[in-house]
């Protein structure tokens, strides 16, 4: 729906009121009490209206990256302006609870001729195609990142354990059992992984806050772009712990199976 605002001070007292969104108010330097002309096409005759409210935009993902402004008019005025006659795009129906919703849906769809009723949930799914694509993309990137970090972690922990060659040899030479040495190494690797993932969670939380701050300001939306949930933290910590233990165990096995003198290079 094209709505253009011609900002002109009108002599005639405005008859009707409109609400505009905060983005338009900021960009066009409009405030409550200002007058504006609204018309359906550039240059077409329009109505002079009074801006009676400035509304903040909802956290609607489908509006991200669209530089549109939102104007709320009284329905009859918009119908007149657009010469649509007594026509609307949709009705929003409020119900008492989910049972009532189901009943209302069935009743409307049985009786309706030429239109259909849908639960808002289904409409939301339909209109969030963009976000389905983005989240699939993020998931794919996430998998790649997990693979990369898993390899990185394995590599670092292998090296970390390998560094203990001489200590392991010395321990074995003074009679510490393979089992004890193995346990000590795996425990150390697990602790390193745990410590690293704690640091990672902190960095992730800060990054998430920075991402939200930046994109909320950039797209002028209260929408949260990145959310660190308990599940995500748990997954990250569990993954790094598991990888740490596996890497530690692999490297430890190799070390305890090698004769101590060979570990010392003799």
């Amino acid at each position: 729906m094209l709505l253009l605002l011609a900002f002109a001070v009108q002599v005639v007292m405005p008859q009707r009121t409109i609400a505009i969104d905060d983005r338009l108010a900021a960009d066009a330097h409009l405030a409550v009490g200002d007058r504006a002309v609204v018309s359906a096409a550039p240059g077409a005759p329009g109505d002079t209206v009074l801006i009676s409210a400035i509304v903040s935009r909802g956290a609607d993902p489908s509006e991200i990256a669209r530089g549109e402004y939102h104007v709320r008019l009284h329905l009859d005025q918009l119908e007149t302006l657009t010469t649509y006659g007594d026509r609307v795009d949709r009705f929003d129906v409020a119900t008492r609870d989910s049972t009532a919703t189901r009943r209302a849906l069935a009743a409307i769809n049985d009786a309706a001729f030429g239109f259909r009723a849908y639960p808002s949930k289904d409409i939301a799914v339909e209109t969030s195609a963009t976000f389905k694509v983005v989240s699939r993309f993020h998931r794919a990137i996430g998998v790649i990142t997990i693979v990369a970090s898993a390899i990185f972690l394995l590599c670092i922990l292998l090296l970390k354990v390998e560094e203990r060659r001489r200590d392991v040899a010395a321990l074995r030479l003074i009679g510490i059992s393979r089992r004890s040495v193995f346990r000590a190494i795996v425990l150390e690797a697990a602790l390193v992984a745990l410590l690293g993932s704690a640091l990672g969670v902190a960095i992730g939380w800060l990054t998430s806050a920075a991402v939200n701050g930046y994109y909320q300001a950039f797209y002028r939306t209260p929408l949260r772009f990145s959310i660190v949930t308990g599940d995500i933290v748990l997954f990250a910590v569990a993954l790094s712990l598991a990888l740490g233990v596996v890497a530690g165990a692999l490297a430890a096995l190799r070390l305890v199976r090698t004769p101590p003198l060979r570990l010392l290079g003799r």
Binding site: I144, T145, A148, I151, F152, C155, L158
Partner: peptide, 17 residues
């Protein structure tokens, strides 16, 4: 060899990304 293979793999994933 194991270390080298892991490093090559790690660099490969980083390069791919």
């Amino acid at each position: 060899a194991a270390r080298t293979a892991l490093a090559v793999l790690g660099v490969a994933v980083a390069a791919a990304m």
